[in-house]
């Protein structure tokens, strides 16, 4: 067992983080919100970095990496509150289409000419689909009604849930960072509010939740990559842990910001709403609890001391 990443994996995540920090800051979120949510230049930048080909086999023109690498990048997409459907297209649709042997669209995904968001029966809406436009609470998501021929493939669902979990971890990281920065900056009663234990403890609790969600997401990525028998259980665990961490952090970050956190003018709300949207997508909390419950009580996963770290 080894929970460490290789230098290459870490470098990849860092370079995506730095690229997005430099090109996709909060002023970009606000501009997108005012000007229709999508900017071809942002998409092209992601394509130029090779991100659309991460999970595409080298034989098909991609980088041939695995779900662990993709999950690391998805965390960064969450952190940046990226609105472009990179995760859906490159980390959910691409591996699913490859697995299905439907490779005709792959070249278009890699070269950036096709954004494909797969429709799954568990989702009533589709991001960036072709149906009628819907207004999401997340102002940067372009939602549309789902087509009738949505897939019911469980592998697709697990990919979607895993990648949502990874994004939720990044979203939680970003909100915790914003709240922590604000707690150092904002003074009341003659001192930074971060000096009050009531604030410290709340922020610390978020950190606990996030740090414990992180390895669960990695574990799920590795399990789904390996195609193990219990991969779905790991994915559900990851989705639940990441959802709980992100929702707790959203609530706390608003609270720490006081009335500021309740405005549309402070950027925090973009992340809070993305967290809300992704926590419901690809299986709600209830759905994933049920899958765990069926696995544990139903006995489909082995339990007992020798299986604790499985």
């Amino acid at each position: 067992m080894d929970f460490r990443f290789t230098d290459d994996q870490l470098l990849l995540a860092t370079s995506v983080r730095e690229y997005l920090a430099g090109t996709h800051g909060t002023q970009v979120l606000r501009r997108l919100d005012e000007q229709g949510n999508r900017d071809p230049a942002i998409w092209q930048g992601l394509v130029d970095m090779g991100l659309t080909g991460v999970l595409v086999p080298e034989a098909l023109g991609g980088l041939g990496m695995g779900l662990v690498e993709a999950a690391l990048i998805a965390v960064e997409c969450g952190r940046a509150c990226l609105a472009e459907p990179l995760v859906d297209t490159a980390f959910v649709a691409a591996p699913w289409l490859v697995r299905e042997g439907r490779t005709d669209a792959i070249a278009g995904i890699v070269d950036g000419s096709r954004k494909i968001v797969p429709a799954h029966a568990i989702n009533p809406w589709l991001a960036d689909g072709e149906g009628a436009r819907l207004q999401s609470v997340d102002p940067l998501r372009n939602l549309t009604t789902a087509p009738h021929d949505a897939s019911e493939d469980p592998y697709l669902l697990d990919l979607g849930a895993l990648m949502s979990a990874a994004q939720l971890v990044g979203i939680a990281d970003a909100m915790l960072e914003q709240a922590t920065d604000y707690a150092k900056l904002r003074s009341q009663f003659g001192q930074p509010i971060g000096a009050f234990q009531a604030i410290k403890h709340q922020l610390a609790s978020c950190m606990v939740a996030i740090e414990f969600a992180r390895p669960v997401v990695w574990r799920a990525a590795a399990a789904l990559q390996a195609g193990g028998a219990h991969a779905a259980t790991h994915v559900s665990h990851a989705k639940l842990a990441a959802t709980d961490a992100a929702m707790l952090t959203a609530e706390t970050a608003i609270q720490v910001h006081g009335a500021m956190g309740y405005t549309y003018e402070v950027d925090l709300h973009f992340w809070m709403k993305r967290a809300w949207a992704l926590s419901g997508a690809w299986g709600s909390r209830a759905f994933h609890v049920r899958r765990l419950d069926e696995a544990v009580i139903g006995g489909t996963i082995p339990i007992g001391p020798e299986h604790t770290f499985a």
Partner: peptide, 21 residues
């Protein structure tokens, strides 16, 4: 939070085209 968990993903969608809830 309970309201949102009851509504599920339907709670995330506005009734019309405007950002009104």
């Amino acid at each position: 939070e309970l309201a949102m968990d009851v509504l599920g993903q339907a709670g995330e969608i506005a009734e019309g085209e405007a950002y009104e809830w």
